[in-house]
Design a protein around this nucleic acid. Sequence first.
DNA 1: TTTCTTTGGGAACTCCAATCCGCATCGACC
DNA 2: GGTCGATGCGGATTGGAGTTCCCAAAGAAA
Lengths: 173, 173
Amino acid sequence: MVSGKDWADATMQFDKLDFMLLAELCTNARRSHVELSERVGLSTTACARRLKSLEDSVIAGYHASLDLKQLGLGTTVVVRISLESQSEEALEAFEKAVIESPSVVRCFLMSGSDDYLVTVIARDIEDFERIHKTQLSRLPKVSRIQSSFALREVVNRIAPPAAFQQWRAPRRP
Amino acid sequence: MVSGKDWADATMQFDKLDFMLLAELCTNARRSHVELSERVGLSTTACARRLKSLEDSVIAGYHASLDLKQLGLGTTVVVRISLESQSEEALEAFEKAVIESPSVVRCFLMSGSDDYLVTVIARDIEDFERIHKTQLSRLPKVSRIQSSFALREVVNRIAPPAAFQQWRAPRRP
DNA sequence: TTTCTTTGGGAACTCCAATCCGCATCGACC
DNA sequence: GGTCGATGCGGATTGGAGTTCCCAAAGAAA
């Protein structure tokens, strides 16, 4: 680290066109090369070339997002979980079990007093009670579980808009 | 509601093949019809037909997911925000501003003592300080902000595996 | 049985994506 | 200034994918 700005190294390899492509793909991953090229003002060939290099570096994958309400899964619950011990074995055992839990969509190891922040998707409140009993309370080494229900989803984005808003000089001046 | 199981109505319209397709698309949204048909054991035509009907109903969209660390955005912060008032105007003003905040990726209106749970993506801790000053503390009607840093991401899924694991009788017995 | 409905499969057509090639621009170096 | 290599764009071609017909098979209802 020279300047104290590591991230500059990371983002400097991309220019405005790359970020335009990334933004397009984040909102609609199934756009054809033709559509993409029209939107960013490039030929389909150049577009495909950039796309490939982005896929080799910064694009982790392409995913379909589902309307979970239509699948009967309309309830999001955020669960704060503290463990009895913070030993490596305890963390490892807990995490292994969380990954296996079929109702969990997100789990972060957190700083502060709560050890883990887990997001659970349930059909409804009664279904969450079942999940709590059959999945959460059976997680190993848990000392405290604290659940909060999400009443409404205000924002849900793949990436922050800020990610697309800084770029180095264009490749061609 | 007859039986107390609303969700049965919602999920009953899909069978095992549909859920197999959905699971495939959630892990890789760019699979061709050929690949999909091979994986679920259908012809490409039948596959495409089911796909179209799924896109018209339960598939909300296709998104590229980015390796945010490679973009220099390696820090996830979960922020609990309480408002001065719970009036409709306060909520509305706050939400409008949150949606505009370029570093926010998720925001839920919560039950319990904390009004909103907001997930922020930052470059690093110093960058979060900047975001805190320039974005979070400027949100309207905020009374308390409490931040927790995510030390590690343990699970991050588009949909819970449980969503794919129950289906009605196959369309063709 | 006849008919209608639903779903799967095949063939043809259209269009897209991947690749090869040539061209333009920039920088380094002699 | 001239040359060489590196980098990036664009055009044309070809193999493959997606789409759209049409028909077949299996139940359900009359």
